[in-house]
Every structure is written in structure tokens, then in C-alpha cells.
Amino acid sequence: MQATVAGAQRADARAWLLVAAASAAWVALYRTILPLWDWLVYGVAGLDPATRLGGAVHFFFYDVSKILLLLTGIVFVVTVLRSFLSVERTRALLGGRRAGLGTVLGAVLGVATPFCSCSAVPAFIGFVAAGVPLSATMAFLIASPMVDVVAVTLLYGLFGWQIAALYVGAGLIVAVVAGTVLGRLRLERFVEGFVFETQVRGGVDPALGLGWSDRFGMGRDEVGGIVRRIWPFLLVGIGLGAAIHGWLPEDLFARVAGPDNPFAVPLAVVLGVPLYTNVVGVIPLVAALQAKGLAMGTLLAFMMSVVALSLPEMVLLRRVLKPQLIAVFVAIVAAGIVGVGILFNAVL
């Protein structure tokens, strides 16, 4: 036993050293990419920064490398931090709470808990069986996909931290409001009956007994998985963004989808529903459109709709929720997103 403890300590020390070295390399690289692409695009390739082509090529390479670096760093840190929580711990934290505070906590934990929307069904049943109020369960299920780490990182990389923070805040508000409304409507009768009859055996806590080297390993695997999955979408999205940036007229959207058009936000929300898997390609694209006069609130509403209202998740939830409740769920979340979009268009 003594030997394994010492071994685990050695593995942790080695993991910390590796992470420290990788962080230093990350910072150095992050500071180098702008001068590097300046030099390569304008110096070596000899493109003129004042031309459309020069600007678009530089925009493409610089943005792709910046966002990949940001994703690597942020996803790693978030995954390591999230490894201290688990769906089981969250369920224990939420069980038996009153609706009000429980709903806010449900939304916050929806952001903080490592969760794949493919386990929405067992999580839903587990929450209900543990006495978590329906409003808190719904707030959790809405906030979890909406405040997505990849989406927030892209917003940060393309618009800065203010817009990213605004998005996180708005996502939490939509989750709390929609959760509260769903809880108030007394919709428990539209939950499939077997959910309340399911006996949940003493839960298993997957976060138990993890060492630092395990947590860092999870972070590394998550970064690898996400980068491998998204890079084609990212290249296409930023490529189209660069083209729009360079060639589309400045005021293209200012007239049709500017802040004065009341139909822009609902339309953006409807358009967002089928685009579920392509959020990574969609964000750079809409970022470029924003520069052409698309209003910020419309843009944020569109993004929320892309990530929060997804058809695959509806199909999964159908196993535990009756169609009426799914329809109400979609309607309330969509209304919340439209409200947030219109509010931001009015304020920003």
C-alpha cells in the first residue's frame, strides 16, 4: 500500500511539472502568433495588409491559430476543474432543495458539472428520484448545453471577455427563468410514469479517488477529442468569415437585421435549431456578419438557439417526457432566448 501511495505521488509530481512546462510553452506561443503571421503573410508571402486578399488571409490564419490555442488552454483548465464535480455530487447537492434557490443552483451546477447531453435521460431520472425539484432539474438540463465551454471560448476569442461574460449571464438567466416557469406549471404529470417508479441504487461517484495525474490526463483527452472533432468546422467557419470580412458590403445587415427589426431575433432563433452540431463553424460566421451590421442581441440569441435547442436532445428526452412537456419546454426556452435577444438589442 505504501509503495502505491509513493508511486501515485511521483506520478502527480511528474504531471504537475509537465503541466507547468506546457503552460509556459502555451503563453510563449500565444504571444508569438500575431508577429508570426504578420511576418509570414505580409513579409514572406509579400501580401499587402491594405488589400482585401492580404487582410483576409491574415485574418484567417491568425484567427484559426488564436482560437485553437484558446480552446486548448481553456478546455484543459475547465475539464480539470470540472473533474472535482460529477453528476452524482451535483444530484446530492440539489436533492431535497426548495424550488427557488435550488433552481439557481441547478443552473450554476449545469455549467460546472461535467456532463454530456447523451446522458440527459439517466441524469433526469436520477435527479427526479433523488427528490430534486423539476424546476432545478430543468434549469440544469437547459444551462448545461447552453453555457458550453467551446461556444464561450469562441465568443471570447472573437468578441472579447465582455460579450463572453454577457453570454454566460444570459444563459444562466434563461435557464433559471425557464426552469422556474416549467416548475410552476405543475407539469409532473407529463413526465413518463416509470421515472417516478425507478429505484436508484446507491449512486456511484466517478470523481472519487482521482489523482492530479488522472485529472490532467482527462483534460488532455478532452482537448484532443474536441480539437479532432471541431477543426474542419472551425476552418470552414473562419474561412467563410474571412471572405465575408473582406468582400461583403459593410451595411448588408444593418438594414435587414439591424437592432430596429423586431422579427430578426425570432427568425435567428428558428434558424438556429437545425444547426446543432456546427456551433464551431457557425460562431465565426456570425461574428463576421456582426461586423456587417447584424445586431449583437440577435447574434447571441442565434447562438443560444443553436446550442440549447437541439433535435437530438429532444429525441433523447422524449423517452422520459411526454410530447406535451417537450413542446412546452421548447416554447419556454425559445421565448426566453428571444426575450434575451430583444433585451440586448435594446440595451447594447
Binding site: S86, E88, F115, C116, S119, A123, V204, P206, R319
Partner: peptide, 26 residues
């Protein structure tokens, strides 16, 4: 889903060996 819940698992995927849950949620 009911069978999965029967193991006390709320986060998939999970690995069960000889009816004991060894891993869940990762």
C-alpha cells in the same frame, strides 16, 4: 435506460465488470 439506472449510474458511459460499476461519466 431502466437497466442503466439499475446500476445507480446517472452519467454515461459506464463500465461494469462482474456487476460492479468501475467507471461512470468518462
Amino acid at each position: 435506460v431502466a437497466a442503466i439506472m439499475g446500476y445507480g449510474v446517472t452519467a454515461t458511459p459506464a463500465l461494469v465488470v462482474d456487476e460492479r460499476v468501475l467507471v461512470s461519466g468518462r
